[in-house]
């Protein structure tokens, strides 16, 4: 059910990927996403698949767990695939009424589907193997140069890490609220769109009430411990690149070079 949402969730395990510096993982994910948009033939996607499969394997996160994250975007995936499949011009392979499948459409749909799926899987590997705190640290340090342009980098990364941390909490809370209302006979599955939207009210109201309460509690708890933003704040565990990060960057560059080469050659 609602618990299938794995975005923003951390999966504890002891793997080389878990141990990488968060900056390496952030940059790696970015490069991977760019490579997906760069890829335009089967060979490129082959390389992307290989890279992703290796990352999943090394991360020791069960594959089932990663796929569960895909379920949340299955609808989006289906829409974009069918749009591309039926609405692209080209050599017609199959036709029924105004629906037709062309060779270009097939190709585009396949690539679009793969691209979206890999994008979600790739970024969930990053969030699954990095604690929200590490992630925020990584972002803060990588974007530190923006400080000079008076961008409040620390505050932004703090907000981000809190928001990420709240996702699983809110998901859990939604689950509890749904159960409490189901125990009173609530029905979220039947009826037309309007009825279903209305049946969400008994979930949304308690959820908002509790989210606001949590937010004020958290703000209070932070102030009670004298939090006052990033100025002059030092770290207990400053981020430091290790040998394995160098290795990871090397692999990443090799992958990027391979994708570019495959695209240029074919």
């Amino acid at each position: 059910m609602i618990r299938d949402i794995t975005i923003g969730q951390y999966y504890p395990a002891d793997s080389p990927i878990h141990r990488l510096d968060p900056r390496t993982k952030l940059f790696g994910t970015l490069v991977y996403i760019v490579s997906l948009f760069f890829a335009d033939n089967l060979w490129c996607y082959g390389a992307a698949t290989l890279f992703l499969a290796a990352a999943v394997r090394i991360s020791r996160v069960p594959f089932r767990f990663i796929v569960r994250g895909l379920k949340a975007v299955v609808f989006l995936l289906l829409i974009s695939v069918s749009f591309n499949l039926f609405l692209t011009d080209g050599r017609v392979l199959w036709q029924a009424g105004f629906l037709k499948i062309t060779d270009a459409g097939l190709r585009l749909a396949l690539f679009m589907g793969l691209r979206l799926a890999y994008l979600v899987i790739g970024s969930s590997i990053m969030t699954l193997t990095t604690t929200p705190n590490q992630l925020a640290d990584g972002l803060e340090k990588s974007l530190g140069f923006l400080n000079r342009a008076r961008v409040p980098v620390h505050e932004i990364s703090m907000m981000m890490s809190i928001a990420l941390r709240f996702i699983p909490i809110l998901v859990e809370e939604t689950d509890k609220i749904m159960k409490a209302q189901m125990a009173r006979g609530a029905d979220f599955e039947s009826g037309n769109v309007i009825r279903r939207a209305k049946s969400m009210i008994p979930i949304l109201v308690p959820l908002f009430v509790s989210a606001f309460r949590r937010a004020t509690d958290l703000a209070m708890a932070m102030e009670a411990r004298c939090y006052r933003g990033g100025e002059g704040r030092t770290k207990m565990k400053p981020l430091q690149y290790e040998r394995r990060d160098g290795f990871a960057y090397a692999v990443l560059l090799a992958y990027l070079a391979a994708v570019i080469a495959l695209r240029l050659i074919w």
């Binding site: 809370e173 509890k176 609220i177 159960k179 409490a180 209302q181 125990a183 009173r184 009210i201 008994p202 109201v205 308690p206 009430v209 509790s210």
Partner: peptide, 12 residues
């Protein structure tokens, strides 16, 4: 009938 631990989860 099941009444959960926290009434906050059901009042709306």
């Amino acid at each position: 009938g099941l009444v959960f631990q926290y009434p906050e989860y059901q009042l709306f």
